[in-house]
């Protein structure tokens, strides 16, 4: 993890490449699915662009990745740098930009960004997901005043403070682990007594003297004057409500797929808002493929390794599509 004594050379947000007017395939989204797609597309010798606001996606928030095959322990940042370097090595162009719109024009898709427009006969949509909010009073009001969604960004600002992490998945446990390096006390608040996080994470944090588990509780309100001072939490079994004094609260209760632009080109979503993909990662829109957390194809396993695997399938399906339609030889 970058520290005051480490000097990254690669930035996940500062890229130099310029958008060209045309590609064979445009990948929207630069997380593990998008970058793995780019490796396979570039090796299929497709003219490949990845357009994303950052390269690494949610993985950048992970200070400790211990389940990506071949790496016993690495950081999200280092792993994503390796993905990025790998994609660029084989010729994929990584463009740091915000995609504003996508539409079909004849047999191509036009992709409009804040750094210009481009077009391609195939799109691979790998935009992932964004943080789910608790949706409780105080959450918006105290955003940046004790409410955070990025422990890797903000943990160091809570030196010696008392914080809570809300959630029961890997990310919640990872963030709690990181916070114990700075805070004096870390509560993990979860709605159930069971956790979705890997049992290894649960075991580890149960042994950490700074960590206290509060289950089965939900957060009802976040309160304070200028900044967060306490949480009002409720026991889901007994209905009992109590106050928990904290200086900060980190929210890790899952993700919402980012499908806005896909919807505009008529891509079908399931009832939970995920893009419906077939086994080959194609969607109902011809030439429009999708991969990773934004799709139904993950079987609930939102991991770097699964996202990368689906990206490989999407790239090769897009290649077959482009060949079949005569766009490439």
């Amino acid at each position: 993890m970058p520290s005051p004594f480490s000097f990254s050379l690669e930035s996940p947000v500062l890229s130099k490449a310029e958008l060209k007017p045309e590609y064979d395939v445009v990948i929207v989204g630069g997380g593990p699915a998008g970058l793995a797609t780019a490796i396979y597309a570039a090796r299929a010798m497709l003219r490949t662009a990845v357009i994303s606001k950052d390269f690494g996606g949610q993985v950048l928030d992970a200070h400790s990745v211990e389940n990506y095959p071949g790496f016993i322990k690495t950081t999200g940042q280092e792993l994503m740098n390796a993905f990025k370097e790998h994609a660029e090595h084989f010729g994929a162009e990584l463009i740091q930009a915000t995609v504003k719109d996508i539409w079909r024009e004849g047999d191509h898709f036009v992709v409009d960004t804040d750094r210009g427009s481009t077009k391609a006969p195939a799109i691979i949509y790998a935009t992932g997901s964004t943080h789910r909010k608790l949706g409780v009073p105080g959450e918006e009001e105290f955003l940046g005043k004790g409410v955070s969604y990025c422990a890797i960004c903000d943990a160091a600002l809570f030196q010696g403070k008392v914080v809570a992490v809300v959630g029961g998945g890997n990310m919640a446990f990872m963030d709690a682990d990181l916070l114990t390096q700075h805070a004096s006390k870390v509560y993990i608040i979860h709605r159930r007594n069971e956790f979705r996080a890997e049992p290894l994470w649960v075991e580890r944090l149960k042994k950490n003297p700074k960590v206290e588990f509060i289950t089965p509780y939900v957060v009802e309100r976040i309160e304070g004057t200028d900044k967060v001072e306490k949480l009002i939490i409720k026991n889901r079994e007994t209905g009992e409500t109590k106050e928990l004094p904290v200086d900060g609260v980190f929210i890790d209760i899952g993700m919402i797929p980012q499908t806005e632009l896909a919807k505009r080109v008529g891509v079908e979503l399931n009832e939970r808002g995920y893009i419906i993909v077939r086994e080959d990662q194609s969607t109902n829109v011809s030439g429009f493929f999708a991969a990773g957390d934004v799709t139904t194809g993950m079987n609930g396993v939102h991991q770097i390794v699964t996202a990368a695997a689906k990206g490989a399938i999407a790239a090769l399906s897009a290649y077959d599509y482009l060949k079949g339609k005569g766009f490439v030889k």
Binding site: M1, P2, P4, P12, V13, L14, D54, D61, D114, C153
Partner: peptide, 30 residues
């Protein structure tokens, strides 16, 4: 970005901008 450039050119009075960061924040350099 072309639109940003036009807007920035319109600023004719001094402004002081502080960008608070931590070295571990991946999004801050943006």
């Amino acid at each position: 970005n072309a639109n940003a450039a036009k807007k920035i050119a319109r600023i004719q009075e001094p402004l002081h901008v502080l960008i608070f960061v931590t070295p571990t924040c991946p999004y801050c350099p943006l």
